[in-house]
Design a protein around this nucleic acid. Structure first.
Lengths: 341, 341
DNA sequence: TAAAATAATGTTACCGATAACCTTAAATTA
DNA sequence: TAATTTAAGGTTATCGGTAACATTATTTTA
């Protein structure tokens, strides 16, 4: 590998002069600058970030930790984070925790060892607390995305989950639905908790009764085994006329399960959910959803992170919380019920 | 930040002894080992990868460069690459070039500066050649995914694009279609070229005539402006009865455009494409596709990369080419045509 | 019992860059 | 013209690790 010493020797100057040319610091004569530049080109010099980071004590590297790389919500979020990072001159690396607290821990270790300047984290859930405490202890700035973790104050970008759930239930109720079920993520995930709360509140406001058999709390990520959903469907007697899914993945799996039983959406079962399906909802604008502004989660989160990093030391800055609105897109997955049963 | 020197001082040993404990090298008495370990825990020591990489001249970091992070083909591929990297003890970072040769160049620079041990690249296209030459010149091992680049020999994982195109056309022909159009990626992308070739060959074998007005060569990635597709549709007189799309993104955009004109798939227009739509094709198993084994692209590519890295020096190893089969999944986006016109 | 081997640890130099300080010659200023 | 500045560049130490080569005790072997 070519180093600044090779350049220095060939150009007949000191390594420091080469460093000055590279970073445009100090005073350098045009003649020297040109000569050094020429030699750099000639030898295909590429600076060594690691050596640089070691002295500077900062890596110019940021990390984005998401929980499901195959979910369009997170990939769109990633695009937003990427764009914002690039705008501020940072490099961005991605990690994928798979909703798995263990994998998340591995990534946190990697992040610390890499001496990343900051992290954007969509935490796996409340059990992520120790990882966040580790980051805090090592003074790595971070911003939480999509989910809060009780016991840890920080900057955070959230969606308005409670309001979103209310809107979905209100919409179903307005279409005449009286038996509305909820399939949701784990209660150890803040957004799932809020969605459950919103669901309950909206039921009450619409004079519908809450029945815990109508609620399934499971995992937000894709599963190979649908039996949990199957037995939930078996448990509900009578079957609901509509289902609210806590995210897009759950909605898809509900559809798979229903299709397996020959139940059509929306003819025999209405379905709504959180998060859109990415560009593919364009093929067939079918699912009625709360379309969270995924790109903004990433973009705004990254902006907050960069601010934090650049104000390091001035610790006074209070934590910021951004709550993005829950906008409903009405499509065709809800049938109107004429005669209330 | 806590360093091995802090540990060494507190444990009353030398830094080298701490290093030995961390890496499990050399001979260390149990007593010393235990003491050092305890101090490390106490001080929350985290090793500094950068310092380590600097001496060792290897970073244990691999890179995956994809062209469209919102495309399920690539995110699934990423999962495969991630799993294989983890299996071999490497850390993996992702980059997203957006089918953009400029961005790709930026990433290549970052990769070199980061001193990554190797790279998995889905190149933007033939114009990526100089970037690959740069990697080669700096002796960074790489494996190409999904696309070859003329003029650059290397390990590569491809799909059988020609065969896939043939299968799609054969299927359409068998359903009675005589006017089959093709919307494809740029001719500067090897897979697009092969898909065009397969399309032409299959036309000939099925006694169909090739009409260049029926072929649109555009970009594989999502676009905001559909006018190019619009004017292509205008240009085709009469309209084809079926369209082959070079990838999933193009298929989606064709559907959007057709819907804008009130043309239904498959009633008024049949449509098939390369690459599945991820989990969301489960909602509505609609599109007939060549479902490439995305996960395998990433997994096998990563295996080849790791082999290359570990055999560094033994340059004799010939380049390997893996061609994954093109399996067709027949669904409902093709209508049978009874009376040939 | 002296010589050789081994276990356990320490010293020094270096990876590639940069900050902080130092030197020299030319240009300003008084 | 002598005293200061300034421009242009060099020297040295350091970031946090590790390889390679000492250095000691302590065993083992002849």
């Amino acid at each position: 590998m070519v180093t600044i010493y090779d350049i220095a020797a060939k150009a007949g100057v000191s390594a420091m002069t080469v460093s000055r040319v590279i970073n445009n610091t100090g005073k350098i004569s045009d003649k020297t600058r040109t000569k050094v530049r020429r030699v750099m080109e000639e030898l295909n010099y590429v600076p060594n970030h690691m050596a640089r980071s070691l002295v500077l004590q900062q890596s110019n590297l940021l990390f984005l930790l998401i929980t499901d790389i195959t979910n369009p919500f997170y990939t769109t979020l990633a695009r937003g984070a990427e764009d914002a990072a690039k705008k501020h001159g940072y490099r961005l690396l991605f990690g994928n925790s798979d909703e798995n607290v263990e994998k998340e821990k591995d990534y946190v270790d990697t992040i610390l060892a890499t001496r990343a300047d900051g992290v954007l984290v969509a935490p796996a859930g409340d059990p992520s607390l120790p990882h966040l405490e580790t980051l805090r202890k090592h003074r790595v700035p971070f911003v939480l995305l999509d989910r809060e973790v009780p016991g840890m104050d920080s900057d955070v970008v959230l969606g308005d989950s409670k309001e979103g759930a209310r809107k979905l239930v209100d919409h179903l109720s307005a279409q005449g639905h009286r038996r509305i079920a909820l399939i949701n993520g784990s209660p150890y995930i803040s957004s799932a908790r809020l969605r459950l709360e919103g669901y309950k509140e909206a039921l009450k406001l619409n004079d519908l009764v809450y029945d815990e058999n109508y609620v399934l709390e499971t995992a937000f990520e894709p599963r190979s085994d649908l039996s949990e959903i199957e037995s939930w469907l078996d448990r509900m007697k009578p079957l609901p006329s509509a289902i609210v899914a806590g995210n897009n993945v759950l909605a898809v799996e509900v559809i798979r399960t229903l299709h397996g039983r020959g139940i059509q959406v929306p003819q025999q079962m209405s379905l709504v959910c959180f998060d859109d399906l990415g560009p593919y909802s364009e093929i067939d604008p079918f699912l009625t959803v709360i379309a969270q502004q995924a790109y903004q989660f990433g973009y705004l989160g990254m902006q907050m992170l960069v601010e934090r990093i650049q104000q390091r030391g001035e610790s006074g800055l209070p934590w910021k919380k951004i709550v993005l609105p829950a906008d409903m897109i009405i499509r065709r997955s809800v049938a109107a019920i004429s005669a209330p049963k």
